[in-house]
């Protein structure tokens, strides 16, 4: 048997790394989001090594110290409190590191759980259809006009505040956040199961499991990834809102909790501006990095709006 050789030189396949770099150069928002995220991760990770963990809690350092980073006096530099301390005697740097770490945890936990529920529900209801589909779609439609935050307030306020941990926060957020990913995945599966490659697979005798995991799932991955990022955004956002109205785990220095505490102690009236501003700034970075990644993922998942070079 002779092998056929192509008269053309085989196209040079650029390395994977180069492809990723080229893609990131085109998809600027994904790049920017990832860079901010990298900075935040570095800040948190180095912080976790540097700070004294118990300084994140009240009565551990001198109270109401302005950030040492701004104080260029020799005796204060390098100050022991680079980001200052609050009214309760928490080291702001330690509190922020812990708060950001927990915010990330809530985001990832609720994002993963919400996406999982969404994928399972959306998939089964779209693929098998029938009564189950009608019920799931009906529930999603009825719950959609209800402002999720309001129901979260009810749930969070019926819990005993002393029992609330960051895991309960994630749970509260997930309980009302699965509708959006369910509807997204459902509509994708609905359109995908009518495509030709699924019909071909069906006619070739591939079973339900093979079609779901072998044919539809791989094509669905970009949508699942995009849904995951937007769920993480949602989780961070909702838990921040809950914390800022005073429904967070009161013992933990969650970023929203710090702002709530600062506001209820009249931080601006008293001139302790760094107390609410620092966590607010961190939150802006977190949310905008997630929003940028989300926009970039949209482009990845939806080739129609993808830019070409």
């Amino acid at each position: 048997m002779t092998t056929l050789t192509s008269p053309y030189a085989p196209p040079i396949q650029p390395s994977r790394w180069k492809l990723i770099r080229g893609y990131l150069r085109r998809n600027k928002s994904l790049l920017a989001g990832l860079l901010i995220l990298l900075f935040l991760i570095l800040f948190t990770l180095t912080g976790l090594f540097i700070v004294e963990p118990k300084h994140a809690f009240p009565l551990s350092v001198r109270t109401k110290q302005p950030p040492g980073l701004l104080d260029f006096g020799i005796e204060n530099w390098p100050g022991k409190l680079p980001l200052g301390s609050d009214f309760f005697g928490r080291d702001m740097y330690a509190a922020m590191v812990r708060g950001m770490w927990q915010t990330a945890l809530i985001g990832v936990l609720s994002g993963a759980a919400g996406t999982l529920i969404g994928v399972v529900l959306g998939f089964t209801s779209a693929y098998f259809g029938g009564l189950f589909d009608t019920i799931i779609k009906g529930i999603c439609q009825i719950l959609t006009p209800i402002p999720v935050f309001m129901i979260q307030i009810i749930i969070a306020s019926s819990l005993d505040k002393r029992d609330v941990t960051i895991f309960t926060m994630a749970g509260i957020v997930v309980m009302l956040a699965w509708m959006a990913p369910t509807l997204v995945i459902r509509s994708q599966v609905l359109s995908m199961k009518e495509r030709q490659f699924v019909s071909v697979a069906k006619l070739s005798g591939v079973g339900n499991g093979g079609i779901i995991f072998g044919e539809i799932m791989p094509n669905l991955l970009p949508f699942i990834a995009a849904a995951f990022v937007s769920q993480v955004f949602n989780g961070v956002f909702s838990s921040f809102y809950l914390a800022i109205v005073g429904l967070g785990p009161l013992r933990e220095p969650l970023l929203g909790n710090i702002i709530w505490a600062a506001q209820s102690q009249g931080a601006f009236f008293n001139g302790w501006w760094w107390w609410p501003i620092l966590p607010a700034f961190a939150m802006v970075l977190i949310l905008s990095s997630l929003a940028l990644i989300n926009m970039g993922m949209d482009e990845l998942a939806n080739p129609r709006i993808r830019k070409t070079e």
Binding site: F268, A280, S288, L290, A291, L292
Partner: peptide, 21 residues
């Protein structure tokens, strides 16, 4: 468009700091 991911509460805190404080 840059402000899009930022919830109004955070903008409110920055506005309080800059314009009011």
């Amino acid at each position: 468009v840059l402000f899009m991911g930022v919830p109004p509460v955070l903008l409110a805190i920055f506005l309080l700091f800059l314009l009011a404080f």
